[in-house]
Amino acid sequence: MDGISNEHLVDSFRQTGEMRHLDELVHRHMPKVRAMIYAMVLNHADADEITQEVFIRMANGIAGFQKKALFSTWLYRIAMNTTHSFLRRRSRNPADVYAEPPDQPDRAAGPDRALMANETGAEIERALADLSPSLRSAITLTAVQGLDVKEAARIEGCLAATMYWRVYEARKQLQKRLVRYLKS
């Protein structure tokens, strides 16, 4: 189904009801959606759980998708709404946060490099965790996912000016926090 647009797949599903069209949408977008969610929740098990919920919501809501935005914008909005809701719930039960042990170093890359990557990764995650959810989503959508600021604003449902400020503030805080790793 390469070369077929997301919107065409949506139409095909609506017309035929064939699940393979939804499967293709999941296949295309799942890695990016999951990465976006992981950067927000910083926990693999939670990221998997939320990713599943996002695609169930996509399937349930696809009849109401009105093509006023790109399919990807609509899907990412569902992803970020679901993630923000999860973070609010988790803030009430902080004991579960970061319950996972840190990932094992990638030994194939050599012990020193692996250790360094692991240390850097842990520090990046701590720095991201210290950002407020709105700043974290701003940096996730723009720097990690590579979306432009206007697209990120559409996903987050805020003004572009607000998103510019959030990105600026998030970058400022991260640069200060990660200065050691940026220099190297």
Binding site: R34, A35, H44, D106, A117, Y181
Partner: peptide, 12 residues
């Protein structure tokens, strides 16, 4: 670059 490298390492 730092964040993208981290994200690719953190990917499932």
């Amino acid at each position: 670059r730092l964040l993208k490298d981290w994200a690719s390492r953190a990917a499932a």
